[in-house]
Design a binder for these strands. Structure first.
Lengths: 189, 189
DNA sequence: CTGGCTGATGTCAGTCGCTGACATCGGTGA
DNA sequence: TCACCGATGTCAGCGACTGACATCAGCCAG
């Protein structure tokens, strides 16, 4: 071992998730998180821009997955279906992490500041998807709209997945939700 | 005049918008806003839960408008069209405030924290719309999806409206955006 | 008329999120 | 071997936000 224990960042993420779950986000200070990770508050802020971000850094990796998925979608697909297969393809990213996702979501559900961060992260995924569509030659506002619908489907499917123990797979829920969206927008009741 | 000048809240809103625009949101302290309004920092926080909220209190009134609009939508309409007419009906709320909306939006566009707040406010509008649909007998996930699409249309139409000087009316842009959304979700390119 | 109550505001002290500046010191490469 | 680097620590400070208590014009009951 070098001068410091390795994996500082990972230790901070673990400590934060634990403490936010045990005591609640608002009742946990950054100093406490850092101490549990064997570090100082200052070091926490060198790894994460703020107290919330420590719960969202995985999202960046997911964004990359999503970009790859939209690039790899068959070019003959319409925008909405390209988005559909891209979103569905990302399901694998979460399938074997249900417990983690559940804990994380329950922490977020209890705090408005965390919900704000979650929303803005989803919005940045919308941008990534829309950019991907534009690279496929889709013009605005179709690109924005298709991307927006894709992330809506993603969000709603995730919500269902988390809440249904022993329910369908995430990928299946995503396909399902996209179908539901198409029906609704076509004027079905 | 009583013991204090009246309209403290309104003075704070005005002072905040001015200062956030002049110096930027991050470069403005709450104390400065309060002073320009002839009040103290503590009083600011009695009127607004935080430094950001002062830009968003109009949103609550708008939420009410939206709820009324969805209640008043003809009951024979499909969920998506009920949402469509409701959103379109709210356009009047903004039509004669373009300049204010522009300034406000330019302030928000420059600060990520404000964008987070904006998103969460839009999410709460989605909830209001979805509740309204459920009261019309629409089941989930159709209610959530239709509501989500409605606010997406709202957001995109607002964006276009703000950026196009002498462009179409907001109501027209909303109708237009909903049509575009329907086409995209139907698989058009 | 008067005295007590109310409610909007002020004052003050304190916590916590977050930042800049500078110090520390193992590891690494010329 | 030694100068440098980079991850961390230390410290001081700002600003957002909160709780507790003080103030005092206006209003209302008596």
């Amino acid at each position: 071992m070098g001068r410091w224990r390795p994996d500082a960042r990972q230790r901070l993420e673990k400590a934060a998730l634990e403490l936010y779950q045990e005591r609640g986000f608002a009742q946990t200070t950054v100093t406490e998180v850092a101490e549990r990770a064997g570090l100082t508050e200052r070091t926490f802020f060198r790894h994460f821009v703020d107290k919330r971000e420590v719960l969202f850094s995985a999202g960046d990796a997911f964004g990359q997955t999503l970009v790859e998925a939209i690039e790899n979608a068959p070019s003959k697909l319409s925008p909405i279906d390209a988005v559909g297969v891209a979103v569905e393809a990302t399901a694998a990213f979460f399938e074997n992490r249900l417990e983690f996702v559940r804990v994380r979501q329950s922490v977020i559900a209890e705090n408005p500041e965390l919900q704000e961060r979650e929303r803005i992260k989803l919005a940045s995924l919308v941008s990534l998807l829309a950019d991907g569509l534009r690279r496929r030659g889709v013009a605005d506002p179709a690109a924005s709209l298709a991307a927006e619908m894709g992330i809506t489907v993603f969000r709603i499917a995730m919500g269902r997945w988390i809440n249904e123990p022993n329910g369908p797979s995430l990928a299946m829920l995503m396909r399902d939700s996209l179908d539901a969206l198409k029906k609704v927008s076509a004027g079905k009741r």
